[in-house]
């Protein structure tokens, strides 16, 4: 297994798209955090500032999309180029290959997004001046690390969808739909079941970990993140079953 992990690490570090998607993720994360923090600071007393940690982590959603792209490319790139057949000749244990790829993408995504998350927190708080939160305040550290976890999980979601759909544009559309568009649309659903679906739907649940306080009517931070991980686990399991069954 270590050999397969090293192989996947070599693969991910040796293509330019990795550097670009990671760079875009960091720029979106820190840039958005700074932008929102600066405009909040400009509003001064008029701003209805509630959660200054959340403000500095505003870029999480966009950074998540960039990281999901990394995940999609890690596996979709192999299908686009035909490299997948060469890969499976070297590692015929398909689940082993998928597990190694997932582990490497998750490790890369987490280390970069953790750094980006802390950077945007400190940069944002510096801009917010006297309204700044501190790392020791209740829920703040959990939110900052949580943002990195959310971004990492979305990266793995991208990988799972890439393995399932085996087509880069299709997988990216699926990612945007599942983590960006559909979660917003669930707000429009009527009735009790609509509220429940809204609460449990992918990033509606997952985002809770980036807030210092529990929003009204939403899941608790870790519960929400666990629900988001369940969505990803189901997608990954479906991808694994099909990967084993389909011809490469």
């Amino acid at each position: 297994m270590t050999g397969v992990l090293r192989s996947e690490w070599t693969k991910i570090r040796s293509v330019r798209s990795t550097v670009w998607t990671l760079l875009v993720a960091v720029v979106l994360m820190v840039g958005f955090g700074l932008l929102i923090a600066a405009s909040t600071a400009n509003l001064g007393e008029r701003s209805a500032l509630t959660d200054s940690t959340m403000i500095s982590l505003s870029g999480s959603a966009f950074a998540s999309l960039a990281m999901a792209t990394l995940g999609v490319l890690a596996v979709g790139g192999e299908y686009r180029t035909g490299m997948i057949r060469t890969t499976l000749l070297a590692v015929p244990g398909r689940l082993r290959m998928l597990a190694a790829k997932t582990a490497v993408v998750a490790a890369v995504a987490f280390s970069v997004s953790l750094a980006a998350s802390f950077a945007s927190f400190f940069a944002g708080q510096a801009v917010l001046g006297d309204k700044a939160a501190r790392l020791g305040d209740p829920g703040v550290l959990r939110a900052v690390v949580g943002a990195a976890l959310l971004i990492t999980a979305t990266g793995v979601f991208g990988l799972a969808l890439g393995a399932l759909i085996r087509h880069i544009p299709g997988a990216i559309v699926a990612v945007i739909g599942l983590v960006f568009v559909l979660p917003q649309m669930t707000n429009l659903l009527p009735g009790e079941w609509g509220d429940t679906l809204q609460r449990y739907f992918t990033t509606n649940a997952g985002n809770q970990i980036t807030y210092t306080r529990v929003a009204e009517g939403q899941l608790a931070p870790w519960t929400g993140f666990a629900v988001y991980c369940a969505w990803i686990a189901v997608t990954l399991a479906a991808a694994a079953v099909l990967l084993r069954r389909r011809d490469a």
């Binding site: 090293r6 192989s7 693969k11 040796s14 293509v15 192999e78 180029t81 490299m83 057949r85 060469t86």
Partner: peptide, 17 residues
Amino acid sequence: AVHGGRTARDHLLCLAQ
């Protein structure tokens, strides 16, 4: 059936590993 963005050495290296 190779990833065009990878160098020849890296392509072979990932297979070797």
